[in-house]
Design a protein around this nucleic acid. Structure first.
Length: 424
RNA sequence: CGGGGAGUAGCUCAGCUUGGUAGAGCACCUGCUUUGGGAGCAGGGGGCCGCAGGUUCAAAUCCUGUCUCCCCGACCA
């Protein structure tokens, strides 16, 4: 993509409406724009990041045996009345009426809809287990939306639901999901902890949260300095600096985190109230044993920024960066630089690499500042070293700069996983 | 919803106390110079001062109402 034709309106000043770093940087970098409180447009850069995260999620969900569906965002009140949540959910549920004065709501979550779908179309134990997921825009009329994508009212969420015949089946489905979640956040290049949590309004029994660690996180996590023990602070009621209840070798420390995923063992909460049942081998009717598994996609992007940034801007992990590299000819009026840029751009792009070519007629400083703000993992700089036949490859996270010939750029290690493998 | 703060150009803000008909920096457009970390000079475009009403000869400025946005609390991916 050429910068001159790319829609990425960057700002020099922090917008006054933004308080947290991810919100500031996403606005400044031209990733998002606000339409109303807690409601944002994703600009090309922001949408690219969202799609990267979504693809990682899809891959792991599919491999875990879940199948992708897309459920309606607009849902009839009747379903919500069956589970009692029409009255319980409160003002967070955005309600509306159609032209016939029938009650509807904008889905904040989809337990009712998915349970309805499955009860109407699955009736035998032979069809279980079943795992279905979707990636969709949710709406929750939060009392106080804030921090940009961190807590929006409209937000993109991956929600997955498992249907099993018994608690043992649920345990297996849940463990598959937990493992898939670990792979997802690993693949996103994030550091995180898995903590035992309070199921809250969704209900059910056991639940765990996936917390991306960052000093700016809203939640406090107690974790062991020695083993993998971790719990949310309010739930654990454990004092810090005590010894670990699990391994007793480590000492408990507090850390801050951002909740990006939450997985629940729901049990029969929804299937019972909605009469969602299957027939077992004996012909007996039994309610499904359910689990549900959510990931905040936009929040994951925001959390990645909270965890990975510096004074100059975002530092994306390569896996979810909107582009793998920035191509920066320092002086755009230098024909050697622009010719080399064109050749390199075409070569790298043909190999499958996503390159943002800063072909603007700007001074070097402007381009460097902008590319650092955007947080692209690698800058390929064509400048004074070009007279010696070298380009400079600069790593955003470490500041490391490596001189190499233009033809060597495609062999730069960090690009490896993203190169289209050619059949020989 | 309770408490606090703010709405003036695309962004950051000044002007408001003491009413006299709107400014700066950045961004944008044109020209010239410049080209390795947010350049310089010259010229230019852009704002019914959130909205409605009131006071006044006169309102960005004073008064009333209203909407929106942000921060702290309860909620959550």
């Amino acid at each position: 993509m050429k910068m001159t034709s790319f829609f990425a309106p960057t700002l020099r000043d922090d917008p006054s409406e933004a308080e947290v770093i991810s919100h500031k940087l996403m606005l400044r970098g031209g990733y998002i724009r606000k339409l109303a409180a807690g409601i944002y447009s994703y600009l090309p850069l922001g949408w690219r990041v969202i799609k990267k995260i979504e693809e990682i999620i899809r891959k792991e969900m599919n491999e875990a045996g879940a199948q992708e569906v897309l459920l309606p965002a607009v849902q009839p009140a009747e379903l919500w009345k069956q589970t009692g949540r029409w009255d319980v959910y409160g003002k967070e549920l955005l309600r509306m009426k159609d032209r016939h004065e029938r009650d509807f709501c904008l889905g904040p979550t989809h337990e009712e809809v998915i349970t309805d779908l499955v009860r109407n179309n699955v009736s035998s134990y032979k069809d279980l287990p079943l795992m279905l997921y979707q990636i969709q825009t949710k709406f929750r009329d939060e009392i106080r939306p804030r921090f940009g994508l961190m807590r929006g009212r409209e937000f993109i969420m991956k929600d997955c639901y498992s249907f099993d015949r018994d608690p043992e089946g649920l345990r297996i489905s849940y463990e598959k999901m937990e493992a898939a979640y670990r792979r997802i956040f690993d693949s996103c290049g994030l550091r995180y902890r898995v903590v035992n949590a309070d199921p809250g309004a969704i209900g059910g029994g056991f639940s765990q949260e996936f917390m991306v660690t960052a000093q700016t996180g809203e939640d406090e996590i107690v974790h062991c300095s020695h083993c993998s023990f971790a719990a949310s602070k309010e739930l654990s009621k454990i004092e810090t600096d005590n010894s670990c209840p699990k391994c007793s070798e480590g000492v408990l420390k507090v850390e801050r985190g951002i909740e990006v995923g939450h997985i629940f063992q729901l049990g029969q909460k929804y299937s019972s109230s909605m009469n969602a049942e299957f027939l077992d081998e004996t012909g007996a009717r039994r309610p499904y044993v359910m689990g549900c598994y959510g990931i905040g996609v936009g929040r994951t992007a925001a959390a990645a920024i909270e965890q990975n940034h510096d004074q100059n801007g975002i530092i994306w992990p390569m896996q979810i960066a909107p582009f793998h590299a920035a191509l920066v000819p320092v002086n755009s009026s230098d024909p050697i630089q622009s010719d080399t840029a064109k050749v390199l751009y075409e070569e790298l792009t043909a190999l499958g690499l996503e390159v943002l070519w800063d072909d603007r007629d700007e001074r070097a400083g402007v381009k460097f500042k902008d590319m650092d703000l955007l947080g692209l993992p690698v800058k390929i700089i064509l400048g004074k070293t070009l007279s010696e036949g070298k380009v400079e490859v600069s790593v955003r996270s470490s500041g490391e700069k490596i001189l190499m010939s233009p033809s060597e750029v495609k062999h730069f290690k960090p690009f490896d996983p993203y190169l289209r493998k050619r059949t020989v």
